[in-house]
């Protein structure tokens, strides 16, 4: 188990038990709008539908009705400097259906930060304005230090 190498056959053919799973899953924002009880995940390429179901039910205690998966091909792009073709990694995307009465909405994480952004922009504008006025004031006396003033 710690070698992460599973035998083809064992006497008695016991069910495979994984004690330290190293699968990862991340919850992603759905690109087209979806039903409220469907959640999108990106997960390790090795995970099967059964793995995903068990993972969510046993580790996160989330009831799962159905799992559909697809493998999204990574994008091809040209390297900016060299011009050779680069391919991004493929991803496995899982669409997990929760029971009818449950719903999940992807939270807006940067709500507070957006408010702060407005304030930051305001202060930046103020600074720009004051700098502009300072430049205008000293237009006709170049080479004079800023402290040389009334």
């Amino acid at each position: 188990m710690s070698t992460r190498w599973y035998p083809l056959y064992q006497r008695g053919n016991p069910q495979l038990r994984v004690f330290l799973p190293n699968f990862w899953m991340k919850l992603v924002r759905p690109t087209p709008k979806q039903l409220p009880n469907i959640v999108n995940f990106e997960c390790s390429m090795e995970m099967t539908k059964y793995d995903i179901k068990n993972y969510l039910e046993k580790i996160y205690n989330v009831p799962v009705v159905d799992v559909r998966t697809k493998i999204a091909m990574g994008k091809f792009r040209k390297d900016i400097g060299k011009g050779y073709v680069v391919k991004e990694d493929d991803k496995k995307i899982a669409f997990v259906t929760l029971p009818k009465n449950m719903s999940f909405e992807f939270p807006n994480i940067f709500e507070k930060v957006e408010d702060q952004d407005d304030e930051n922009m305001k202060s930046l504008d103020d600074a720009k304005k004051s700098f502009k006025s300072y430049i205008d004031r000293n237009k006709n006396r170049s080479d004079v230090p800023s402290w040389f003033s009334i």
Binding site: L20, N22, W24, K26, L27, E42, I59, I109, V113
Partner: peptide
């Protein structure tokens, strides 16, 4: 160790999710 493994596994998933969301929102 078994318990700690699952704590770390969840933490890693959380970090991956947050990283993905930050990248998507250019933060």
């Amino acid at each position: 160790l078994h318990k700690l493994w699952y704590v770390l596994l969840k933490e890693r998933n959380m970090l991956f999710t947050m990283e993905q969301e930050c990248n998507a929102k250019v933060r």
